[in-house]
Design a binder for these strands. Structure first.
Lengths: 162, 162
DNA sequence: TAAAAACTGTTCCATTCCAAACAGTTCGTT
DNA sequence: AACGAACTGTTTGGAATGGAACAGTTTTTA
């Protein structure tokens, strides 16, 4: 019988939906939160990524934020024009562009973090309903899944030949 | 000291990133999987939602798939033109539209499910790296978070006044 | 040290997305 | 029944997205 096969399949579908539900719920908050602050979701991602680095090249930023370079280039343009980011040239490298947040940018990001009803506030409240153990287990399981998925990407498109 | 406040905040940020990582990894697969089959991501979502119902109205479909009705209307148009979905009128209700999959649609969805290197195949392999307990705990924790987030939505925009 | 290849970022444009305006239908009130 | 409000789905128009072509820079190869 293919009962096992079918059951494995169902387990995967159920978990996929579970992620999907959370993801879409979060996206609604993020989209609203971004729009309220005059940002696109891409720009929001960029800011949240860049804040974790002092400086970062566009290339690395694109990898971390999972954004195609064309989108990145345009989104950054908007942020620079608003004075939230700065572009630098690196000495001895006229190809790569270094990005960093301006004072104004840092303040702006902080204000988003603490915004009433923003994704960060709400998600923090949500996390507080979890026990320590639940939280830790969750991170471990997520990392396990993430690592697996990432491995498949690097195998260029998930095509595995023997 | 606000050490605790800060720590709570960090915990939430870390988990948010953890979800974000998985989400973006999954999106890469889904996007590729959709494009390969000539679908937009919205259309992909629609098909995956509709397959779990025999019939569904556009309104309900929109709620389950978290898609705005304008996007929905156009995405469905494409699917109907490709002969994957059918629109029906309900007797005694000339406003709502009932949607269902055609035979061709069902076959199409099945073929996506079993596609080599598709999100379903890869995610299933990923899920198999989890123990039963990890899997069950994951679902519980997700549901807990999902429920919390959903509650905030219905509170129309997360604004809570006393 | 040329020429070719690879690499980083920009520009272009066709497609997709979604808020808002709209059209038609149903419900509620009088 | 008639009016207005609410509801479901479509159309419209402007913005966001991302693949592909491109421009300039650096590295590799011959």
């Amino acid at each position: 019988m293919d009962n096992n096969v079918n059951q494995d399949f169902m387990r995967s579908v159920i978990l996929l939906r579970s992620f999907s539900d959370i993801q879409k719920n979060m996206m609604l908050f993020i989209q609203r939160n971004a729009t309220e602050n005059g940002l696109t979701v891409s720009q929001y991602s960029i800011l949240m990524t860049i804040i974790r680095h002092k400086e970062i090249t566009q290339k690395v930023l694109g990898e971390e934020a999972f954004l195609p370079k064309s989108t990145l280039s345009q989104a950054i343009d908007g942020l620079v024009k608003r004075g939230l980011l700065q572009r630098h040239q690196v000495d001895g490298n006229r190809r790569e562009v270094l990005l960093s947040t301006s004072k104004k940018g840092v303040d702006f990001i902080k204000s988003i973090h603490t915004q009433e009803g923003g994704i960060h506030q709400i998600f923090q409240a949500a996390v507080e309903t979890l026990t320590e153990k639940q939280y830790d287990d969750l991170l471990v399981a997520h990392l396990q899944l993430s690592t697996f998925l990432e491995k498949y990407h690097t195998e260029q498109g998930g095509l595995v030949s023997d």
